[in-house]
Simulated assay, not measured.
Amino acid sequence: MTHETPPSTTPTEIHTDWSLHPGVVLSQVLARRAMRQAELAERTGLTPKHVNQIVKQAVGITPDVAVLLERALDTPPRFWANIGADWEVYLSEQRASASLKDFTAWASKFDSGTLVRYGIVGRSDSLPERASKLLRFFGVANPEAFEQTWMRPRVSFKRSQAYTVDEQNTALWLRLVEHCAQGIDVSPYRPADLRKSAAQIPAFTSMPFTTGFEAAQTSLARAGVALVFVRQAPETRVCAATWWIDDKPAIGITERHKKPDIFWFSLLHEIGHLLLHPRRKTFLDLEDDRHTDDEAEIEANDYAASVLFPGEARDRIAKATTRQELILLAADLKLGLPIVAGQHGHLTNNWRVGGKLRSTITEQDVAVLEERCQMPAIIS
C-alpha cells in the first residue's frame, strides 16, 4: 500500500502544546495524513497494540521508536524527544503544584505587607501561589531546604533576652537586602578605602537625612561595600546587618527607632564589623543595645563612637546643660544636631535637654530611601 504525504502536513506545521502527551501529537499527525494506526504499525514494524498504546497515552515514545517514526513519517527523532521531555516536565510541575498545599502554613507566616510591597507575591495570590513564589525568591525547593539554607547558617544572631524575634521575617529581610545588594555596582573591596569612607560619614550627618544616606551609599560603593536600605519587617527588631555576598561585603540597614542618631551609629557599627572582624561572618544587630557583653559588638560600638566622637567630643557633649550648648557643639564638631542631641541623651540619660533636637525619620524619608535602593524585578 502506498500513501502520499500532503506537503501541508509536515511536523513543523503541527501546533503542539508543551503539555501534550506525545501520543496526542502522534494522533494529530496520523489524522492530518489520513493514516490509520494499522498502517503506521506496518510502516514501523511495531505491533498495532503498541501504536494504540502510544495514541491512548498509555506509553510514551522511546528513542528507538522515535527512530522508527523518523523512517515512516519523516519526523526527526528530536521532535518526539522534545515533546516527551516537555510532557514529563509538565507532569513533574503538576505534582509539584499539588504539593504546594503542604507548604501553605509555612508561607502564611511571612508578613504579607512586606511580600506585596517588594513584589515578591501578588496581593491576590492564593497561598499555594505565594508558597511557590517564596520558594523561588529564597532559591530553595521546600521549607526544609529554607530551614537549612537560611534559618540555621544565616539567621544566626544572638537571641534577645527581652523580646521575641520573628525569625522567618528576619530571613525575609536579609534576602531582600541581599537581592538589592546584588544589583549595586561597587568597586573592588579595599579596607583602606573603607576607612576613608567611614571618616566622611560624620560630615554626612549634617546633610538632610536622605541626602546624607545617598552620599554614604555612594562613598561606600567606591570602597567596595554595598549599602542597602530595606524597611524593617514586623517583629524583626533589626537595626542593621553585615555579611558577604560572594566577594562583596554588604550592609543592610533599617529605620528602626526612626532616629537619625541611631541610624548613623548603626551604620558605623556595621562598618566597624567589616574592618575589625574581617572573617566573612554575618553580624545581625537586633537592638540599639550599647551595653552588651559580646566582645565583637563592644569593639564595633567603640569603633562607631570613635569615628563620630573623636577625642574629647563625648565629654564635651555630656557636660552640655542647655539646648543652645548642644546646637553650638554640633556646629563646632561638624556633626548633625540629632547626632549630638542623641549622644547627650545616651551619655546623661537626661532627654529633656536635647530630646526634641533628635528629629525623626519620617515615612517620606523611608519612601525616598526605598526608591534609592529600588529592588530589581523579583517575581514576574
Rank of each mutant, 00 (worst) to 15 (best):
K259C: 09
M207P: 07
H277R: 13
F309R: 00
P249D: 09
I251S: 05
R280E: 11
L227E: 10
A226R: 10
L276M: 11
T292V: 14
A241Q: 04
R290W: 07
T211K: 07
K248H: 09
L284G: 00
S219V: 05
A313K: 03
D285F: 03
E235R: 06
Q232C: 08
G272L: 12
A223Q: 05
D302S: 12
L194F: 08
A241M: 09
T242I: 00
I253E: 01
L267Q: 07
Q232W: 01
E299F: 00
I271G: 02
A233L: 07
A313C: 10
T254V: 07
E325H: 03
I317S: 03
A203T: 12
K259H: 10
P202G: 12
E312Q: 10
V238Q: 04
E299S: 10
M207K: 13
A320F: 03
V238C: 06
G252T: 10
D302E: 14
D285E: 13
I271K: 01
F229Y: 15
Q200R: 11
I327K: 05
A313S: 15
A318D: 05
A313T: 14
A221E: 01
H269N: 12
A223P: 03
K196H: 11
W243P: 00
G272F: 08
L227W: 06
G252A: 07
M207G: 03
E297P: 04
A250H: 07
T254M: 02
R280Y: 05
A223W: 08
